[in-house]
């Protein structure tokens, strides 16, 4: 564990807390893509199946359980409790266009052809693109609430911090994991446009609005 990894995990946790609080306090999930949230649930469920087979540390176990549990809680809030506020007219991204190619890729490019390893690889590939329905929703509505922007910024920062963690681990521990690194780079690149808007608009007190 190094500082970048810790900050990355905390940023990830912060993103989830911001999202749950936003939904809970405003009693609304407007502006949030349920499709992305479903994909994140698939990501955590398939990646953390190793909870059943391997034990890394109490920290890892707790975080994994928190990520799985909160992703299902988010889906419950969006599709059951605050269903009436869900923006389904704008949340039209076809998730099978992400699920199927990433699954095929995981079958083809993985470290080991076992069920757990292919599912782990699938979760890494899927996570790298899971935010696309959310970004698609923002681009359709042309704007995002500030709180949604903070959520997206924290969520994007998490993988960017992991990139620094991987550089650190490569230099210090000679450890590297190509599948995660390449996917992490892709994931972070997808956020770049949003990061730019966040820094130039939201941090200056303006609403995140896309040019017409």
């Amino acid at each position: 564990m190094n500082i970048f990894r810790l900050l990355g995990d905390l940023s990830h946790l912060l993103a989830i807390i911001i999202l749950l609080l936003k939904i809970w306090k405003s009693r609304s999930c407007a502006g949030i893509s349920g499709k992305s949230q479903i994909l994140f649930s698939v990501v955590y469920t398939t990646r953390y199946l190793d909870l059943l087979t391997t034990h890394v540390s109490p920290y890892n176990t707790v975080m994994k359980l928190v990520f799985i549990f909160t992703s299902y809680a988010t889906i419950y809030l969006m599709y059951v409790k605050f269903k009436a506020t869900y923006d389904h007219n704008h949340d039209t991204f076809r998730i099978e266009f992400l699920l199927i190619p990433t699954f095929i890729l995981a079958l083809l490019i993985n470290h080991e052809f076992t069920v757990l390893e292919v599912l782990w690889t699938f979760s890494i590939y899927l996570e790298s693109v899971a935010i696309l329905p959310q970004l698609f929703l923002v681009s359709k509505t042309r704007e995002a609430e500030s709180i949604t922007s903070h959520y997206l910024f924290a969520l994007g920062s998490y993988r960017a911090l992991y990139l620094l963690n991987w550089v650190y681990r490569y230099v210090v521990e000679s450890h590297y994991e190509l599948i995660a690194i390449i996917s992490g780079v892709v994931q972070t690149i997808l956020y770049c446009d949003f990061f730019y808007l966040y820094i130039t608009k939201v941090l200056k007190g303006k609403k995140l609005q896309l040019p017409a």
Binding site: R5, D9, H12, R47, D50, T54, V56, N60, M63, K64, F67, H111, E112, F113, E117, W120, Y162, N165, E177, A180
Partner: peptide, 10 residues
């Protein structure tokens, strides 16, 4: 296949 290291990250 080469043995896979345990995934120690989240």
């Amino acid at each position: 296949a080469a043995p896979v290291e345990e995934h120690d990250e989240l």
